[in-house]
Design a protein around this nucleic acid. Sequence first.
DNA 1: CGGGTCTTTGAATAGTTTCAAGTACAGTGG
DNA 2: CCACTGTACTTGAAACTATTCAAAGACCCG
Lengths: 214, 214
Amino acid sequence: MNTSILVSPGRLIGAVPMRPPTQGQVESRPIISFIDGQSIYSPGQRAGQAYRVEFGAVRVYRVLANGRRQILAFHFGGNWFGLQNEDRHRSTAEAIGATGVKSVSLQEDPHIWQGLLPAVLENFLSAQEHQLVIGRQSAVERVAGFLLEMSDRSGHSHRFELFMPRVDIADYLGLTIETVSRSLTKLKKKGIIKLHGARGIEIVAYGVLQKLCL
Amino acid sequence: MNTSILVSPGRLIGAVPMRPPTQGQVESRPIISFIDGQSIYSPGQRAGQAYRVEFGAVRVYRVLANGRRQILAFHFGGNWFGLQNEDRHRSTAEAIGATGVKSVSLQEDPHIWQGLLPAVLENFLSAQEHQLVIGRQSAVERVAGFLLEMSDRSGHSHRFELFMPRVDIADYLGLTIETVSRSLTKLKKKGIIKLHGARGIEIVAYGVLQKLCL
DNA sequence: CGGGTCTTTGAATAGTTTCAAGTACAGTGG
DNA sequence: CCACTGTACTTGAAACTATTCAAAGACCCG
């Protein structure tokens, strides 16, 4: 039995004990299905559920008063999201493509939090890494890093399909769709990547891409 | 007895149970003192301690290969930091001015994590809020928001002293010191704030400042 | 094969950074 | 008490990067 399903493959668990099995309480749950763009939760809605992606993908974002959107995170199979300490959501979670999630109630069984701690810490770490990206990297560096991230999360494949449209990438990286497109074109012209249609990405020079995003 | 010391004043605790008192285990600890600029932990160092600021302030940051720095968070009295799931630190934590912290070991007593969960969730929420700031706000908006944040954390005072130099503000907001300076000048010329020396800030038009950062 | 959406490309603009001085401030020693 | 010195901060001008606005091109689905 694999008790480390709570964390992404390849990530070490250091100080955090993995004792209490959230496992059983989650696996027995039904999968809730969502269609592309359907919202899983919205701002103002009561929180109190934690969600795990079973298939498909999820974007979590917030929108400023003037309409500018920032995608805080993408979540894929196995990732937990929706974990928070306030009683109402501030962000929106939406399905990207056909998506299935399982959820557990946090109120019913407060014990569940223990098993979710590694997931919270992982979300936290991702948020910090992303601060570095959007705070201190250029457009090409951000896009390069994004492709590597997507490659990793597609099982370290050199050839993969992006789940999301350009506008999602832009709002995740703090750029515009035009800048994302231009950055991809630059990487393509340098022979570092190849584009197969709008969503298909092939990483030709993995090492160069890694050097690019520092 | 106040069991909500783990969270900043004014923040609601929703779904998270506050049961296990990390409290007693922390209060009995000695205060460790640091001088200005002294590092509390550095990248590569073994993690396994959680820290709480007793007095002074702490900056947590990461540096990219090319030397660009991003301050991930500032921590003031009562704030917890250093919480993570990996066994080695990736970031640096440094004292800003004379600073005292208490620390608890996470390995010795894994139970401690339960009491720290609200702190982790709060750090996570702050990181998300900050993504929005550096991803989607202009320079003046960022600085305006920063001043409000510092005002809040100084007990909602309209007149307060900044703990940190411009370079820290810049690296926190993903800007340069010149842009921070120019933004402050703009706010000053509009009569929204007054500057008293380099560190003293007086918010004249609180409402206007709030509208500015959306 | 057609229609609508998503993506790319181009040109002009706006905002931030970079480089370079100049100014204010705190601490030190005369 | 005041000049001196180093650091921190502000200001200006030029360069650069990303955005905005506009249009053309590619792709997907029925």
